[in-house]
Amino acid sequence: MKVSGRSKAGKFTFECRTGERILYAGLRMGLALPYECATGTCGTCKARVREPATIKDLWPEAPGNSYLQRERGEFLMCQAHAIADCEIAVPAKMNSMPEDYIPLVSTQGTIVNSRLLTHDVMAFDIELADPIDFDAGQFVVLQVPDVEGGRAYSMVNYERATRRLEFIVKKKPDGRFSEWLFSSKADGTVAELCGPLGRAIFQPEEAKNLLCIAGGSGIAGMMSILSRGCQEDYFKDHGGTLFFGVRTLNDAFFLDELADFVSAFPDKLQVTIALSDEEVASIETPHNGSLNFATGFVHIVAAERMNRHYDDVVAYVAGPPPMVDGAIRTLILDARLPADLIRYDKFS
């Protein structure tokens, strides 16, 4: 199907395959279509269609639909197939893609090595038939046969042309994917995936000091960023400071991996685990030498520990929405960072 579109940036056309979401088709062709969550929630990818009968809405109850005026033909590009040639208009500004942009691909992989990291966090890997590239900090949309709809998960690892992607999932009360992952034997399941997606990427050429603030499973993309930084000796010359917020020490994970990062670059890398519901005085772990622990919400701990020393910093933020909001307040009010040095992808 041919999709003909227009935006303030001009006109464009691209081919949308049968069963392919319009957003993913456009991104696959290198078009800078607007999006954030890519999974029906944020409303950022809204567009208008001239003839509603030319598209199929895959998720009429999508939370992001609250941003739409249906009678005007508005729809979410991430939740629509083209079922005939169609004409669309995109209201948001379309910035051009960076030159080193990695085009989106749709592919399949097998879930392997699913394992518990804590009582409510699981990790798993996906083995791909064909290698893919992604930038540190990016995510993919995953879909498995037993669970309706796609879910966005950030890659934990970092490797170019990789056949293995590593993810983490936190168990949520009504999270159907997490329930499926926790209750059944996921290993061996073939998952569909689309990616890479997301603009909160590590850009080593910026040559800045990294400040990462993560809550819970938001640590995934930060692990990828720190992995790349360590692999490429970025932290020989640039600082890296990570604040990782969880409730208690029992909820923390990746502590061995984080301690390894720090021991590779002890002068430049600092990692602080912020425990919102546990007093630090009671903590004794093998990591006490390399990791710092503090009590409090992660964005408040970050402000205290940074103590107004935000020299030449670019900041990355990921986590649950209230934590992201708090971290952004810290970065604007305390760090006084300009908005273009605050990187995060909004999932809600």
Binding site: I328, R329, I332, L333, R336
Partner: peptide, 15 residues
């Protein structure tokens, strides 16, 4: 969602 700092208003949702 608004943050006031240095004469600038920032909406924390999309900056």
């Amino acid at each position: 969602s608004g943050i006031c700092e240095g004469g600038l208003l920032t909406c924390s949702k999309h900056l």
